[in-house]
């Protein structure tokens, strides 16, 4: 496996790892970078970082780590969706009393969190005419536009009699509300880790990577990948 040996020599000369590049396309070295095992040490992958900010897990996907990116996406969006499922849209509120402190963590999910918050502020809240506060509605209220802004108005009696409940969403209360906000915030904090991993790929082997860099045994999955990329059937 001549090509494979050449690759290993290159890896040791570069300090036991590979420099992260932009996207990782073309060439055997760049193809090896795309190994799912993630043997990438050092460097800044700006494209992956930008993609990771836009959608959780996308940064790993564009740098060739499809499985990792997909699972990262499932984890982050699953947590965020779980929070919304538990506490409703009320769980994400950048302008709601102490809820706005939770939003600092939730915002790390990226544009999705800001989109949910935008929808919450603009499609589920309205102004209370008597207090001037932009708030969530109460049962029996409807959102009406008074020409300049959305306001809460009492539902007409005949519509209440007909069984209508108005436009108010059901906000989370007590412990469930806390769990919902916590779940969305955990999603943001988890996405911060995933973003940093996409931006600054450092490998995942821990002690194995260190042993390899110091001349230890080469991970079998690396040999397999090199052999696959160079067409070396013996290595497979």
């Amino acid at each position: 496996m001549v090509s494979g040996e050449l690759m290993l020599i290159c890896s040791h000369e570069s300090g036991g790892g590979f420099q992260g590049g932009l996207g990782g396309v073309g060439g055997d070295t760049m193809t090896v970078m795309k190994d799912e095992a993630g043997d990438m040490n050092g460097g800044v992958n700006a494209v992956a970082g930008i993609c990771a900010v836009l959608i959780p897990g996308l940064g790993h996907m564009v740098s060739g780590r499809l499985h990792r990116g997909l699972m990262a996406m499932v984890g982050v969006l699953g947590l965020f969706g779980l929070g919304l499922l538990i506490g409703g849209v009320d769980a994400v509120d950048s302008k709601g009393g102490t809820d706005r402190f939770w939003f600092i963590g939730q915002s790390m999910v990226g544009p999705i969190a800001f989109g949910v918050d935008y929808a919450h502020q603009n499609h589920f809240k309205a102004y209370d005419i008597s207090t001037g506060v932009n708030r969530t509605g109460n049962p029996g209220e409807e959102r009406v536009h008074d020409g300049s802004r959305w306001v809460w108005d009492a539902l007409p009696a005949e519509r209440v009699a007909a069984g209508e409940t108005g436009d108010a969403n059901v906000p989370g209360l007590g412990r469930l509300n806390e769990i919902a906000m916590l779940s969305c915030t955990l999603a943001g904090m988890l996405n911060l880790i995933i973003f940093l991993d996409a931006l600054l790929p450092t490998g995942y082997g821990g002690r194995k990577d260190q042993e390899w860099a110091q001349g230890g045994s080469v991970p079998s999955n690396f040999i397999h990948t090199v052999a696959k990329n160079t067409g070396d059937k013996e290595g497979l």
């Binding site: 982050v76 699953g78 538990i86 769990i179 988890l190 995942y204 821990g206």
Partner: peptide, 23 residues
């Protein structure tokens, strides 16, 4: 009971960027 799905999603996301071998 909500701790179960929450921990599951944390594990899925965290281990995606932690394990050395996706196998």
């Amino acid at each position: 009971l909500l701790i179960v799905p929450m921990v599951l999603f944390v594990a899925i996301g965290y281990k995606a960027v932690r394990v050395s071998d996706m196998g």
